[in-house]
Design a protein around this nucleic acid. Structure first.
Length: 555
RNA sequence: GGGCGCGUGGCCUAGCAUGGAUAGGGCACCAGCCUUCUAAGCUGGGAAUCCCGGGUUCAAAUCCCGGCGCGCCCGCCA
């Protein structure tokens, strides 16, 4: 239930009586709640906007939803009736109607899909954090969400890893890392370096890829074991930052379907030295390039083809598909969408693109070995949090829980708090910020609220008219925004809208906390304030859940 | 060279879609606030040519055109 729109519609209705169909806008802080800038009426009435605003303000009928409708210069400002506001917000939040959204059917959200050649690094981490958060918000909005990870076990990168494991691993080598992703990445790094310098190695890797696609049992076995192991390392890291993937789809399982798909695309195909590509000139689609290769000269499949097969597979489940991808995939995605349009016109594909996370001195790359691993960042955050809480009298178990929750939530938030299309330059102190606009700030605020509730018994009754302090009213208004925030995050496919909301909600609660004592107030005020704190914790729980930020009762 | 995205105090960031009222936050810095619901908090302060130049408009950070800078893409890699 969208509470703010109830008030907005009331305002629009009042204006309809003047023949004004332009909708009111949200007013700036200090100018009421909604406003109608009257400039656009100036020509029609041949009067200056301020005069028009004044005229309307004099004639307009108020109703129970508004206290005051006044002209301020050329603006007509609407002030919401506070009692009506507190009544509606408290009631609908406490009985959870504010969290009810229409059911919207299935959607597949693909995210992360990092090559299983090594540990997740901080550059890659933007994908699961944005993807998982988007999936959570879609769920909240009423979608039935399935998240998927496309496991690239068929391409050149993975063949490089397999070749490396087969040829470079020896029993004398110390493999101190306990996680496979960290243990095996060295072979990938060495093998790709060798392939660059040595034509024979490169040829062998291509041979490996070919044999793997052809289904050679020994290689299949090796891949299943070792890639599976790297992947379990990656998913363990993901779990540490509260990311759970519903389904892993291995690329190699799709290769058998590719022949059939290609036969349907025959009329758009061209051949060059035995390699096949889709010619976008034949599709009459203008992209930055025309040739999208499906098969190599040696007959092995290419990512573009496998991705077509994968998306058709997704489309069997639902036509609504959302891909979370780095901005480097934009051209690929546009081409993919065009091809899928031919194969299944009902497919509704959307993409959430994000820009890269780089290091101050340039790109992060597993292959080049200059990446900051996500596991290391989490460990570092854990240490930092431990340092802060070690003298606060928690037992070891609690300490570990709190420090881990703080570290992982802080990392998630530092990514989510930036608009997706802005690039991020990684800095340790920024990624692990615990003050100001950060997850720990939000978690701390929540813990404060919980602490109040834990110190009192509440009868469940309240008189909403007791809430009159400006910081009570502001908090109520912000709570009322929740459904709008969810909807906007979904419509714009932008989790950061939710992240910004979490911060403003926490900030506003802290203002309330400072000015409006709960437990020491007279009984009626106390009960109303408890209701408000309760409402706040309910909304905040949903917000934190949307963002994948852990909730702590104490910290 | 072409395409896409970004450019806001020392650093980071919101606002830009749908032009409007003092450009909102955070970090860092300075000065304050813990005998009263958790100081990971709160209050106050200094700090901005909204990349540059044109244009549209009563009004431009926001729209249009032209530059500049940065990132990404233009692979029989993914």
């Amino acid at each position: 239930m969208d509470i703010m729109s109830i008030f907005k519609e009331q305002a629009n209705e009042l204006l309809m009586k003047f023949g004004i169909s332009k909708e009111v806008e949200r007013a700036k802080e200090g100018f009421g709640d909604f406003t109608l800038p009257c400039f656009f009426l100036a020509k029609k009435y041949r009067k200056n906007p301020a005069e028009i605003a004044r005229d309307i303000a004099n004639k307009i009928e108020k109703n129970e939803y508004f206290d005051k409708i006044e002209a301020v210069g050329p603006y007509l400002n609407f002030h919401i009736n506070q009692k009506k506001l507190s009544e509606i917000v408290l009631k609908n939040t406490l009985d959870e109607k504010i969290f009810q959204f229409d059911k919207k059917g299935k959607v597949v959200v693909e995210h992360t899909s990092a090559n299983p050649t090594g540990p997740l690094h901080v550059g890659r981490a933007r994908n699961p954090i944005i993807g998982d958060t988007m999936a959570r918000i879609l769920k909240e909005y009423g979608f039935e969400v399935e998240t998927q990870y496309f496991v690239n076990d068929a391409g050149l990168q993975v063949a490089t890893l397999l070749w490396g494991i087969k040829n470079l691993r020896n029993e004398n080598e110390q493999e101190n890392d306990t996680k496979c992703d960290h243990k095996l990445v060295r072979y990938y790094q060495r093998a790709s370096k060798m392939a660059k310098e040595d034509k024979i190695v490169e040829k062998e890797i291509r041979e490996t890829m070919k044999n793997y696609e052809a289904g050679e049992p020994e290689l299949r076995e090796l891949a299943k074991k070792e890639i599976g192991c790297v992947l379990s390392g990656i998913s363990e890291t993901l779990r540490r930052i509260n990311v759970e993937i519903d389904k892993y789809v291995w690329e190699s399982t799709l290769i058998p379907h590719t022949r059939e798909i290609v036969s349907k695309l025959k009329e758009y195909l061209s051949e060059e030295n035995g390699a096949y590509y889709i010619d976008f000139k034949k599709l009459n689609v203008k992209l930055q390039k025309d040739k999208f290769y499906l098969y190599r000269q040696d007959g092995t499949t290419l990512y573009f083809l496998r991705d077509i097969a994968y998306h058709l597979e997704k489309a069997k489940k639902t036509k609504k598909i959302i891909d979370v991808m780095g901005e480097d995939h934009k051209l690929h995605f546009n081409a993919l969408r065009e091809v899928l349009k031919l194969l299944d016109p009902a497919i509704d594909m959307k993409a959430l693109f994000y820009s890269f996370v780089s290091l101050p001195d340039g790109k992060m790359s597993t292959r080049r070995g200059n990446a900051v691993y996500l596991d290391d960042l989490i460990d570092e955050g854990f240490k930092k949090a431990m340092e802060i809480i070690k003298d606060r009298g928690y037992d070891t178990n609690e300490e570990n829980n709190i420090a881990m929750a703080v570290a992982t939530s802080a990392i998630r938030y530092s990514i989510l708090n930036v608009q997706e299309e802005k690039k991020i330059v990684f800095k340790w102190d920024r990624a692990l910020s615990f003050d100001g606009e950060s997850a720990p700030f939000i978690m701390y605020t929540y813990a404060r609220a919980i602490s109040i509730l834990s110190k009192t018994e509440w009868c469940g009754e309240y008189n909403h008219e007791k809430l009159t302090h400006p910081n009570e009213i502001k908090l109520l208004k912000l709570l009322a925004e929740y459904p709008t925030v969810v909807r906007e995050s979904v419509e714009k496919l932008s989790p950061y809208i939710m992240a910004k909301y979490a911060y403003s909600l926490a900030t506003q609660f802290n203002q309330f906390y400072r000015d409006c004592p709960v437990l020491s107030s007279d009984l009626n005020t106390k009960n109303a304030r408890i209701a408000l704190v309760k409402a706040f914790t309910k909304v905040m729980e949903h917000v934190m859940n949307n963002l994948g930020i852990s909730r702590l009762q104490k910290m």
